[in-house]
Structure formats: structure tokens, C-alpha cells
Amino acid sequence: MINHHPKFELIQAFVNGDLPASLSAGVAIHADMCPVCQQTIAQITEQVAEASFEEEYLDRFIVDDIEALDAVAVIDFDHMIDDIVESSDISVALPKVEKTISFNDKTYTIPTALSNMELGKHAHIGKLTRSRIQLNENEIHTSLLHIQPGGGVPEHTHKGFELTVLLEGSFHDESGEYVKGDFIMLDSSHQHHPISTNGCLCYTVANDALHFTQGINKLLNPIGSFIY
């Protein structure tokens, strides 16, 4: 049973479209597996939508629409309408193509939120395999991380945050056991040492703005950076 959920502020930012793609996808993957958060997201979206299209109205209800449009628009709205309706194109909803990825002979379905993201080559260290997701978000690194049974991530901390969403399997650390669907957000105050007895696949996001300022040890032993 899923025990760890994104906090409310994060869900709000998700609905507003204010999170980077990496974190947005993390929330979407979690919600895909978590009916509770799905419900919350649906409610917030409805409220935000209502407010968005009402507030503006309250803000400028003195003038009539045409005048308001002229006043706010440097573009020609009528022209834009003509332009749009001229096209008879319809966007068809393509059938969902399920994409898969294999780690050590095990095949996993890639979450829909990631289906159009570009995956990097696999890199291995011991029982860990990582594939970077190419999102071009500068100091934010996003990956799929696979841990073979009995594998673990050496004790580490991160500057900034570190998000793990469990896609398959389970792992445990000092704070307890995590299962499929769990949304685990840690900040720099956490230090942990996750171990997966039966193996698992995780979606991970970490921002490591101070990547290179941590001196020789960090650099010559770049295990933490390798993983996240």
C-alpha cells in the first residue's frame, strides 16, 4: 500500500504547471498509481480552472468585450479566429503505444508520462544500472535507476532535493520499507542508505547545484553523482 505522497504544495504547483518537467512527471507517475492523489489533483484542477476563467472576468467587467479585446490586444482577434477555423485538421488521439525498457533481462513498461522522453544509455556499477532521461534541465538530473536483488545505494546526501518514485519492486532504508507507487522526497537534511532485497526500478530526480564544489573526494568517487 502506498504510504508516501507528494505534499499539497507540490500538487498545487503541479496543477499550475509550475514544476519542471522532471518533477511534473514524478507527480504524474505517482498519481497514475495513487487514486487518492488523482482525486486531489482533479479537484484542484477544477478549482484553479474555475478561478482562472472567472477572476479575469471580475477584473474587467466594466467594459464590454469588444472594447476590452481592443484595449488588451495588439493582435487582431478576429483574424486569429479566421485563421484557426480555416483549418479542418483534427488531432486524432493515437492509440497508446506501450513502451518498455529492459534491465538485466527484466522488461518493464515505461510510465506514460515518460513515453516521449529520450533515454540515455545504460551505465552500470555493481548491482545498479542507471539510464539518464535527457530533459536538459541544467542542474536537475533525472534517471531510471534499477537495483538488482541485494543491491543498494551507498550512504549519501545531496545538496538540494532528491525524489524517488518506486515504479516496481521495493526497497528499505533506515526509515522503513517503500513499495511500488511511493513518492519519496528527501532534502539535504536526510542521509540515507537504501537497500533493495528483491530488486526494484525507480524514477529519480535530484538537483545538485553544487555538483563540483565538494572537493576531491566527491569527484574522485563520483558514485552519488553517478546514481542520481
Binding site: 551505465a123 556499477i125 555538483h211 563540483f212 563520483p222 553523482s225 553517478f226
Partner: peptide, 13 residues
Amino acid sequence: EIINFDQGDDGIL
């Protein structure tokens, strides 16, 4: 200046 680092398949920086 170094703007990123990573580890190749073969473990080389």
C-alpha cells in the same frame, strides 16, 4: 571550466 561530469559505460570519468 567544467560544466558537467558523468561516468562512461567503462567507468571512466
